[in-house]
Amino acid sequence: MFTKFEHFAATSLMGNPTEAPPRKDGHLHFDRDWEKMAFGVAIALSKQGYYEWEDFRQTLMATIKEWETTHDLNDPNWDYYQCWLTALETLLIKSGVIAAGELETQLAQLLHCKPSEL
């Protein structure tokens, strides 16, 4: 049966309430633009074969579990896409897409270059 990878990836997250992404009115719900980007990058790289989608799911679930064991269940700082981003970073390094420290270097450049460009 033909199924789009995007469809497969999203529906595979729906079985488990903690793993499933926020949604509203039948659509995925993003509060901030960076969430969309993090969501899209995770799916795009798996679609291109940089890692298995199942590995992303497992990393995401492990990240969420880690949060749950170190925070109160009612902690208002809970944020699904923060966990998503952490999982994505972890997996990108583990699968060799980026090297450890590479993202921090890029981030530092971005943060420090920006004011001088303005």
Binding site: R32, D33, W34, M37, A38, V41, L45, N77, Y81, Q82, L85, L88, E89, L92, V97, I98, E102, L103, Q106, L107, Q109, L110, L111
Partner: peptide
Amino acid sequence: REAVSAAKVKALESLL
């Protein structure tokens, strides 16, 4: 955390 996450995703996008 919000500002860092937004910048981090931007950095990740440009890196990729």
